[in-house]
Design a protein around this nucleic acid. Structure first.
Lengths: 237, 237
DNA sequence: GAGTGGTCTAGACCACCCC
DNA sequence: GGGTGGTCTAGACCACTCG
């Protein structure tokens, strides 16, 4: 662990434990330099991390201040803005997966463009129903180029494709570009998600995911039951 | 404009104009130092900006590479992750506002906690219907402490509260913490948004917005017609 | 005017990737 | 082993806030 992360963690803990309360001013950057025995740029990197997480604001000419956050929001704030696959989000719960479809097809023109391949290439065409603690939560429609992500078997789908990519293929996942919408479920989706007709919308998360060399490796649409998923973001000017 | 922003803009333009294509490697950081006549940290800050925007990836030991993005996504990428009020988003369109409610009340316990005030304080209680080019698009439910944001009149509501806060009160808006969900509209909302019953979901954006001194100044829920709004995010590991 | 964070320098060493 | 980006230093000056 590098210095600026350690300092960021320490400051985050102090805020979450109430050492610094809502609205209070943090120690000055030049003071923290002495306190931690590091240079000012290192302190800046640490505090900038907290700004990105949404815990504090910096004002040139004044100082750094803790945001007036509700108690509940102070504690799980560092989870916002974060990238993670489905299995990761529900760690600790009993997650099961039903593979609804598992084929190889030519991608549509739209998917081909998103993945930077041609419609002559091949992609997996995967549909999975995810259940958490026995209740259906989300349907995931996934396309991945077989050339980039070879060797996917049914047992991989039943666990985590991301874990397979990182642990078996030794790729690193870098980012995801997401579009979020509200939709109504199709009749098939109502059945899979156990929704009584007309009583529940779908939160759609469309995403293109990227490896750390910049290649797009996944085009996916996740259709979440409206009552089971909330998407969280901290937007800074 | 500072150096690192100018360099970031120049690099972004080069990528958008195809000087650097998908998958290609950018000049090395040490090369760019000479090219632009700046130090390495300045180059790093510029390139890190593009990483945050989702245009490139950096790999220690290898270099910096342009992401394999679809053409459409390369060009408006810098708009993602950004904070902006409603009026800003629809700049250039004919926006009209119908003030449905404009009262002053005590906040609910939930809202009071989010705004860091008590239920004995007062907040504006505002409901507005926003129309773009004549079509209803979103209903905004807004609470703001009257003490922090005094002097709001009906004509402010019909334009932009944010512009009033920045231009009249001379506050700066720093950030918004958002929760995004899918909902079904209430009968009243169906009427206001001209939705035929049961044919369209709502994309709810719940947010607490903050001034640059860290104070929460707004609790709002925006209920967007499902067909009129997409929320866009770039998530990085 | 005093004090804050923002930017920038010129250099060093480290962790990691690829040959 | 050679080259990449990541971190860090010790210092300087600038832009801004506030009394």
């Amino acid at each position: 662990m590098v210095k600026y992360q350690e300092i960021a963690n320490e400051l985050r803990n102090q805020i979450q434990e109430g050492v610094y309360k809502a609205g209070e001013q943090l120690a000055l950057e030049r003071e923290m330099c002495e306190q931690y025995g590091v240079s000012r740029i290192t302190i800046k990197k640490a505090v900038d991390q907290l700004v990105k997480e949404g815990l504090v604001v910096k004002r040139r000419g004044s100082g750094t201040f803790v945001k007036s956050l509700a108690n509940e929001d102070v504690h799980d704030i560092s989870m916002a803005n974060q990238f993670s696959g489905f299995s990761k989000v529900f760690e600790g719960h009993k997650v099961s997966t039903k593979v609804v479809r598992f084929d190889i097809i030519h991608p549509t023109a739209e998917v081909a463009e998103k993945l930077n391949i041609t419609t002559d290439d091949f992609v997996y065409d995967i549909v999975r129903l995810r259940q958490v603690d026995g209740s259906p939560v989300v349907i995931e429609y996934t396309n991945m180029p077989i050339e980039l992500i070879p060797g996917i078997k049914r047992e991989v789908l039943e666990k985590s494709i991301y874990r397979y990519i990182e642990e078996q293929l030794h790729f690193k996942i870098q980012s995801a570009h997401r579009f979020i919408r509200a939709l109504l479920p199709t009749p098939e989706e109502e059945e899979l998600l156990q929704i009584e007709h007309g009583t529940m919308p779908i939160l759609e998360v469309e995403q293109v995911a990227f490896l750390d060399d910049g290649r797009a490796f996944e085009y996916a649409k996740a259709h979440h039951r409206g009552d089971k998923q909330v998407f969280r973001v901290v937007s800074i000017r």
